[in-house]
């Protein structure tokens, strides 16, 4: 299967197989009016199988979302058909307006203007907690 190279845009590579669609949705890529390719289960020497997302436009992407969903992914920035930057993504310490607290007793559940902020409290087990009520995101 062939997907054209992109000239100016972003390639999110080394996505754990099966996480591509989740990332696609969380990044809001379905709302874009540019060419976006989600390629699933690509054969990879390093990973066995992986997903790849190609976005054919120089748009900002929320790398915190990528770090939250799949901290092993890499983001490649392409300009004029050349790779100009490559970032390994780590789990972010703070996630703002990515997750929503499910605790009905939390202040963020009744004050809609408040940002939904989660803090990484356990990197090993990937535990994020609401900064207001400390409820674990699950």
């Amino acid at each position: 299967m062939n997907v054209d190279s992109i000239q100016n845009g972003i390639v999110i590579d080394h996505i754990t197989a099966g996480q591509g669609m989740r990332l696609y949705e969380l990044l809001g890529l379905d709302g874009l009016d540019v060419s976006v390719a989600l390629i699933k289960n690509v054969v990879s020497k390093k990973m066995g199988r992986k997903d790849i997302i190609k976005i054919d436009a120089d748009i900002p992407v929320n790398v915190d979302i990528i770090g939250f969903v799949d901290p092993g992914a890499t983001v490649n920035f392409i300009k004029n058909g050349e790779l100009v930057d490559k970032k390994a993504i780590e789990m972010p310490e703070i996630l703002t307006n990515v997750l929503k607290c499910k605790n009905p007793r939390c202040i963020s559940s009744c004050e809609q203007e408040l940002s939904q902020i989660f803090r990484l409290t356990d990197r090993e087990h990937k535990v994020y907690r609401c900064i207001y009520c400390e409820t674990k995101w699950s």
Binding site: N103, R105, C106, I107, L114, Y132, C133
Partner: peptide, 10 residues
């Protein structure tokens, strides 16, 4: 004092 958790932080 507030009934909602996290209100004091806000």
């Amino acid at each position: 004092r507030h009934p909602k958790e996290g209100a004091a932080l806000v």
